[in-house]
Design a protein around this nucleic acid. Structure first.
Length: 426
RNA sequence: GACCCCAUCGUCUAGCCUGGUCUAGGACAAGAGCUUUUCAAGCUCUCGACGCGGGUUCAAAUCCCGCUGGGGUCGCCA
């Protein structure tokens, strides 16, 4: 039975890189009907925080990565000590005060990596390794090996940055008499300027992406595409599809740059195709937070219509409150540039006529609004756009937005009239 | 600095293992146009890459070597 693990340290939030490592492990487990084990590496008591642990667990759940078993290294200190004692007894380690140090014997270590092929190391360049620190807690490399062996991990899938840890760990497997697992080192994700992911690019917590209005399936889809491809020029792929096609050996060796534009495009795709009811639930807190609606008693039908209006063009749900604010405000903010460009001319006659025609409509709907508008334009003998843009700015405060007749319909006759009348000179 | 990893459009990638079908395909971004209602949506088009130098071969993006470039690791952090 295949067993993989994701072993985050609760000394920081789950970020893009970590979640991608988790994803490849999880995907591989699902693809091979194996188990996905979550191990919290909280041996550094001072830096580990409950807050981080909670965020990691919640984010993994939100992304849809469920685990089969969960362990905490902080609960296993006696196990590490025990194994360190064995090495001491065998004469493979020595004491330095209360600390236990592993002797590294000079040799050539060959590691077969599932992604990279054979990697060779010379252990004479490796210093003696601390197993148990002076404070009695195990070091990373030691706890990691003991746990991976005891938890019967068959495949270690982790970031590239662990390649140089591998020979040290192989030495420990051999010394402890444990069978070697298979290794697969996936490439790191880099920031736009190269190097580690910076705050600006992708080091942000997964929970932050959630708050910004990214959908979990969009994030998962994007993450999959970093160093892996389903083939056949496919960009959009769901978890089920990926499970069918994923193979760790097919993962690229090259580091990938995190590109927020592509993530946005994918997120837009999933928003476009999402059930509006689901989006409604996600958007209500965002609107309430901005003070645009009453959280307790939102007009769900109305908001739902507006969500549908913006659905095709949203990159993130977080864009929604700012883009659709005019639907919820009594007094709208008009962009100064938009006002300057479209409302500096006196349009009293045009606006007045349009209001009159709107009021005459018996069955107020999008089609009849357009009809009325076209008639006004014809009567005034002007171009549609000469009136559409000023009206849009007067109603929404913006130069861009959904179709004007939809806007008028969902705004309603009363608001439309009020907003237009502000620009009519008596 | 030492050790290790990597190298196809600006970015993500297909192709590389099993050389010829590659005048290198797709996607994001960018640019242009259309949509005579905007764009942040849709459609169409354009721009744009095998890092360099040696081999091997009838033939190399694909195999080998070197260089260069980028990245990672060298903690009693994980």
């Amino acid at each position: 039975m295949l067993r993989v693990r994701f072993a985050p340290s609760p000394t920081g939030y789950l970020h893009i890189g970590g979640s991608r490592t988790a994803l490849f492990n999880w995907l591989y487990a699902k693809a091979r009907c194996g188990k996905f084990i979550l191990r919290i590496e909280d041996t550094d008591q001072a830096r580990s925080k409950k807050e981080f642990l909670d965020e990691i667990l919640e984010s993994l759940k939100w992304l849809g990565m469920d685990w089969d078993e969960l362990y905490y290294q902080s609960q296993r200190f006696s196990i590490y000590k025990e194994h360190a004692q064995k090495l001491l007894d065998k004469g493979l380690a020595y004491l330095e005060g209360p600390a236990i140090i592993f002797k590294v014997t000079p040799q050539i270590i060959k590691v077969e990596d599932l992604i990279r092929g054979e990697i060779e190391f010379d252990s004479s360049t490796i210093k003696p390794q601390v197993l148990i620190k002076t404070d009695g807690t195990p070091t990373y490399n030691f706890a990691c090996v003991v746990d991976d062996a005891l938890m019967n991990i068959t495949h270690i899938i982790r970031g590239d940055d662990h390649i140089s840890n591998t020979p040290k760990q192989v030495l420990l497997y051999n010394a402890l008499g444990f069978p070697l697992p298979k290794f697969a080192h996936i490439p790191l994700i880099m920031g736009e300027e190269g190097g580690r992911l910076s705050k600006r690019t992708g080091a942000t917590a997964i929970s932050d992406y959630r708050k910004m209005g990214y959908l979990p399936e969009a994030l998962m889809n994007y993450l999959m595409l970093l160093a892996w491809s389903p083939g056949e020029n496919q960009e959009i792929i769901d978890v089920a599809g990926a499970i069918q096609r994923f193979d760790i050996a097919k993962v690229n060796k090259t580091a990938a740059v995190f590109d927020i534009d592509k993530l946005n495009w994918i997120n837009n795709f999933y928003i476009k195709n999402a059930d509006p009811q689901r989006l409604l639930g996600l958007v209500i807190p965002l609107l309430a937070e901005k003070g645009l609606i009453e959280k307790d008693n939102p007009d769900k039908d109305h908001i739902l219509s507006i969500v549908k209006l913006f659905q095709p063009r949203l990159n993130t749900l977080g864009d929604f409150p700012g883009w659709a604010d005019f639907f919820f405000q009594k007094e709208i903010n008009i962009e100064p540039k938009a006002q300057e460009k479209f409302l500096s001319k006196d349009l009293s006659r045009e606006f007045r006529l349009f209001i009159q025609r709107l009021e005459l409509i018996k069955d107020f709907n999008i089609a009849t609004i357009e009809e009325a508008f076209r008639a006004v334009v014809k009567e005034l003998n002007i171009e549609s756009k000469a009136l559409i843009h000023p009206i849009r700015v007067a109603l929404t405060g913006k130069t861009i937005g959904p179709g004007l007749f939809e806007v008028i319909y969902y705004l309603g006759l009363e608001s439309t009239r009020q907003r237009l009348e502000k620009w009519i000179k008596k």
